[in-house]
């Protein structure tokens, strides 16, 4: 699915990712943990194609394509989804309208006709219900005056409606209350299948109790310093980054 080799990234001359390798296969869930400022969000932006990041070295293969050559929207329409750490507010744009536009952009890219209005309404309603998002919410402007947790749930709604192949969740758990964390995790688990993959960025092992990862990676100063299975998250919870990085 995704193969990152020797990735070096800088922004405004500042080196942030310094030789990162990561390989994610179909059907796998990978967790990425690491201290503040270690480059997790940067990696998610580079994967989704945000500009201003300079790729100094390395390659990224996405399903046989050179990911770095694709535009942001092409990557998205090829099934790459980023649940933002800080979702954007779009004033004046109704959430439901945004969802519809996103879905139809993808369909257009895939050469399909627009989704029928009724079909869309049904899909949105059922997905929103699963995530305990009210229809009132969907009538409001996208993310405007949403609470922190509501924004995160909105990201997962978008994800489940677009059903991506490769989803990156950047600290989706931060800001969620206990019930919301469970609901969101269930949403993610429901989407999991043998054809798609997830990269879950988090600071808390708690999320990984719900979304069981196949692999856990620890990033520090722009490099993956340790990889392991779920038990690595438990170890980290106990020892902290400092000690883990040293033993790497």
């Amino acid at each position: 699915m995704l193969e990152i080799k020797n990735l070096h990234v800088s922004i405004e001359e500042k080196k942030i990712i310094k030789g990162l390798d990561l390989s994610i296969n179909k059907g796998e869930v990978h967790a990425l943990m690491g201290p503040n400022g270690s480059g997790k969000s940067t990696l998610s932006y580079v994967l989704s194609g945000k500009d201003k990041y300079e790729i100094n070295d390395g390659t990224i293969d996405y399903n046989g394509k050179n990911l770095l050559e694709l535009d942001v929207d092409e990557r998205a329409n090829e099934g790459l989804f980023l649940a933002f750490q800080y979702p954007m507010e779009i004033p004046g744009v109704q959430t439901s309208f945004f969802l519809k536009t996103a879905i139809n952009s993808k369909r257009k890219y895939l050469g399909q006709s627009e989704m029928d209005a009724l079909e869309f309404a049904k899909l949105m309603k059922s997905k929103a219900e699963e995530l305990n998002i009210s229809t009132e919410m969907l009538k409001r402007d996208l993310n405007v005056n949403y609470s922190g947790g509501e924004k995160k749930k909105q990201e997962i709604l978008q994800m489940s409606m677009l059903s991506p192949k490769m989803a990156i969740l950047d600290e989706t758990d931060s800001g969620l209350d206990i019930d919301a964390l469970r609901i969101v995790s269930e949403g993610v688990n429901k989407l999991r299948n043998s054809d798609n993959s997830f990269l879950v960025i988090t600071h808390y092992q708690r999320l990984l109790n719900y979304i069981k990862p196949d692999f856990v990676h620890i990033i520090a100063d722009g490099k993956i310093v340790k990889s392991g299975d779920y038990s690595l998250a438990l170890e980290l919870e106990e020892k902290g980054y400092e000690e883990i990085s040293q033993t790497a």
């Binding site: 989704s48 194609g49 945000k50 500009d51 535009d71 942001v72 929207d73 990557r75 998205a76 329409n77 989804f81 980023l82 933002f84 979702p87 954007m88 779009i90 004033p91 004046g92 744009v93 945004f98 536009t101 996103a102 952009s105 993808k106 890219y109 402007d141 978008q158 677009l162």
Partner: peptide, 20 residues
């Protein structure tokens, strides 16, 4: 960027934001 990450091309993204 957010809109484009959701699959909108740059012109559609501008159109959407300006309409908002």
């Amino acid at each position: 960027f957010y809109c484009q990450q959701r699959g909108l091309n740059s012109e559609d993204a501008v159109g959407l934001i300006v309409n908002g």
